[in-house]
Design a protein around this nucleic acid. Sequence first.
RNA 1: GGCGAUGUAGCUCAGUAGGUCAGAGCAUGCGGCUCAUAUCCGCAGGGUCCGGAGUUCAAAUCUCUGCAUCGCUACCA
Length: 642
Amino acid sequence: MTIKTQFFTTPIYYVNAKPHLGHAYTSIAADVSTRFKQMQGYRTFFLTGTDEHGDKIVQAAEKQNSTPKEYADKISQLFQDILPVLNIKNDYFIRTTDENHKKIVKAVLSKIHDSGDIYFSSYEGLYCFGCERFYQERELVDGKCPDHGTAPEVIKESNYFFKMSKYQDWLIDHINTHPDFIRPDQYRTEILSFLKEPLEDLCISRPKTRLTWGITLPFDENFVTYVWFDALVNYISALGYPDSDTFRTFWPGARHFVAKDIIKPHGIYWPIMLKAAGIDIYGGLNVHGFWNVQGSKMSKSIGNVTDPHQVTDTYGTDAFRYFLMREMVFGLDANFTEQTLVSRINSDLANDLGNVFSRVLSMNQRYFKGKIKGADTRIETQKNLSLKSDAQAAVDEFSMAMEKCEFHKGIQAVWHFISILNKYIDTNEPWTLAKDESTLPVLETLMYNLIESLRVVSCLIYPVMPQTSADMQKTLGIQKTDGGFYTLQEAAVWGQIKTASVLPDPQMLFPRIDVEKAPPKELSTPVKSFKPPLKEEITIDDFAKIDLRTATVVKAEKIENSSKLLKLTVDLGAETRQVIAGIAKDYAPEEIIGKQVIVVANLKQAHLMGELSQGMILAASNKKGLVLSGFDKPVKPGNCVK
RNA sequence: GGCGAUGUAGCUCAGUAGGUCAGAGCAUGCGGCUCAUAUCCGCAGGGUCCGGAGUUCAAAUCUCUGCAUCGCUACCA
């Protein structure tokens, strides 16, 4: 018989930032799924890694006076170092700067190039030589580069393009015929709706005159490959595509864990790349949502906690893993707060799991000095004391949910079982049975069933909390060597705890966190950071170039077909001008007439929606929208503002 | 503006072949137990299921419309 296999991946993380909560979640989810698949008897391969090429890395490296490679080494190491901290067991860690990866990217590119799906083409764009990049019209400030203040030049550049459009219909069909291809469903719909529009071909190169930190195209020495083409190939290069056994064994049915922001490259580019290269399409995508961390509202302790190192240091790895898996519905966004985390730890882990474990084993200690007595099946039937079917139900529900990445439901199934155990104890009152010699056999049956149930619980929590699972099993005297685990099949077999063995005193699995004694909130100063980050420092001379003037709005009207833009006529004293302002969502034309505002008066004029704009009015922007600048006393139009 | 999603108890959310679907967990209050990490068990309070209209004998659940929030996108000088 053939052993079933499963390949799971995380995205390769871009090395321009340190690992944070989002990275931790994706990796933990993939790790949990991997461990679960192992419990189902699958052979698994779990891949993670870092994405290390591109402009941003070069720039970040320059800032630190190091080379791109040195910089990438450093950040990549951070991602590698956090894996053991989160108890993630990956089979391989790939880096896009690995020689083998580069080789395979080239091989795939050659293959697609040979088959005619890559073509050379030139296009025109606005290019700033200072930044060494193209700008979209709308990115420019005053028609100039926002960084250099110089007007970008229209240049013609040639690049290689990948004919994605050719495969659009094929992809739509593939998604329709493979319901599992993108999960959960909402993201499948999203991709399909995106595919209703014609796909544009993908630019996959950068000339070396602009970027050298990348993989040279195999068919043109003067170009490097750009962005996704390099990154996505990691999923097969890591397995040793094309010839290795590992690739042959694990590639079929591969599933990629990704956050919702990168479903386009994964759901569209990647399958088309594979198709074009004649490689089997991966099995599917598991798409998850974002963690919201309420930025500035958070106290320091909470704020720091979003650093995975901090939170695991404070609360432990298993508690962190549990919280992430329990709190987020896979696919939807969720909130991360320290308060919720602590609440989960106290109620679910300490009060429920930890307490029932301690409760049962302490009783067994007290009544039988830790010795495991057996269950009397006759008494069990008579008094209806069996927990077997409840355990089986927990295993079944757990399995069904985990299979679909419904981690929260899987966990709920286990906790429902724990709740049954508590009720079972309450109903049968072992402390009463212990007082009467004649009911000792009933007590023995009771205790055996409870301990057996703890065994089942210990097996089921393995994917989410491997360490706690092992700790429980050690106490129960059933630990596997080498951090092993029980398969679902093994776990479900009732009656495995050996009678006559003696269990030690239980240790406390999860101490309660005393909320009262928690660090006083007022002591922790909020860590606020500018969002978006502050721009580069400028001098007073730089600022002096900007000519700000007071102005009065004398006329305002909506621009047809525009949802954001208002056409304003402003009085600047010396002259009146027409200014197009993107404030229509927050201000009705009539309500701003007569308002005094600040205008950037020496801004180069531009056209928007066909309308001339001779300046720009200043407004504060926040989440809710825009608030116009103004003055607390009336001023004459045309005055300087400084 | 376009496309999509969401809107159910104080909080986080379950809940569609439309009829015990008005629920769970946490939080709150009361009662009980004492084996356990002041844990566990039971009970209670509290909701116009975003508003409105419609289909139906019957709608949180279907249709339309409005409002709010979020995401993507278009034009944010």
